[in-house]
Simulated assay, not measured.
Amino acid sequence: MAEATSDFPSVQLHIVTGKGGTGKSTVAASLALALASRGKTVLLCEVEGRQGIAQMFDVPPLPYEERLLAKASEAGHGDVYALAIDAESALLEYLAMYYRLGRAGKALDRFGVIDFATTIAPGVRDVLLTGKVYEAAQRNSRNKGARTYDAIVLDAPPTGRITQFLNVNSELAGLAKVGPIKGQADTVTTLLRSKRTAVHLVTVLEEMPVQETADGVAELKAANLPVGGVIVNLVRPQDLDADARAQLLDGSVDEKGLAKAVGAVGLKAPATLVKQLVAEGRDHAERRRLEDSQRTIVESIGVPTYELPQLAGGADLPGLSELASALCEQGLA
């Protein structure tokens, strides 16, 4: 992968969000691989219970346990580990760590108390989910036997919920004004608002996702949460130059001349074929014009922007590696 200076050298926790359908999970996985290519040991986390990481890396569903996904190569690349975090398991771990309720905690789970607690108090649920990420970020040599990570990538909830999800302290204000849960919320919030964290937003060049991205950046800044970059995903190939696009849009294409050229190479019904080609070209040109207008809006948001191509073969491991290379070349990783 290309050697380039990272735009976020001091960031340990990379949080990736985006409107549904923009490919935020694909970008999160690609970012993890990009960071690993820098020689870092990376933890890739998900919190929505969709097992998207397992599907992309073609491995069995992830348990509540850190699993190796990509091993370091002889070239000195780092490792990527993965973890699927669920609130129920996080709460059981929390009870065992802070209250030593090992078996008793499991008994509570059997009686449905854990599920009740995390359902009736969604703020608590988010504290538990982000709390596990916090625990992974805070590890050091004193954590005997625990793996330490140079970088953590969180495949987070969508843009419409990201500020609420990360702003755990405010969400718990009416639920826990004192006590250990409140204390954990405060420590998690300190990390999330620090220079060690960056929230990256994924969009595509369409009106609704771009507007949601702009709104998301504004909300994050208002909540004092650190915004990283905007990743424009699924960018289509640029098949037409500016002159060709202009001719297609203003209807000045020389169809007769094209039909003559098509007929000269032996294709049948050249006039009909040319009309179809021109119609498809006009659709492409109109799409490009829309994308250019949305790209201008993205650039006006005022944060670093990056672009990733639409993958011809889908989001498999070779495709993720291709996107990871692009992220390194552009300086996100």
Rank of each mutant, 00 (worst) to 15 (best):
P226W: 09
V227N: 03
V227S: 05
G229L: 09
I231S: 13
I231T: 03
I231Q: 04
L234I: 09
P237I: 15
Q238D: 10
A242S: 08
A244E: 12
R245F: 10
A246L: 07
L248W: 15
L248F: 11
L249R: 15
D250V: 14
S252N: 08
V253N: 11
D254F: 10
E255F: 11
E255D: 13
E255S: 14
G257Q: 00
A259H: 13
K260Y: 12
K260P: 06
V262E: 00
G263D: 03
A264S: 01
V265L: 00
L267N: 02
K268A: 05
A269Q: 03
P270A: 08
P270T: 08
A271M: 01
A271W: 04
A271S: 07
T272Q: 04
T272N: 01
L273D: 00
V274H: 00
K275L: 02
Q276R: 06
L277E: 07
L277A: 05
V278L: 08
V278E: 04
V278S: 02
G281W: 09
R282Q: 06
R282D: 00
H284G: 03
H284F: 09
H284P: 01
H284E: 00
E286W: 05
R289T: 04
L290P: 08
E291I: 01
D292G: 13
D292R: 14
S293A: 04
T296C: 13
T296F: 14
E299S: 11
S300I: 03
I301A: 11
G302Q: 12
G302P: 08
V303P: 01
V303F: 02
T305N: 10
L308T: 01
P309T: 06
P309F: 00
Q310Y: 12
L311N: 02
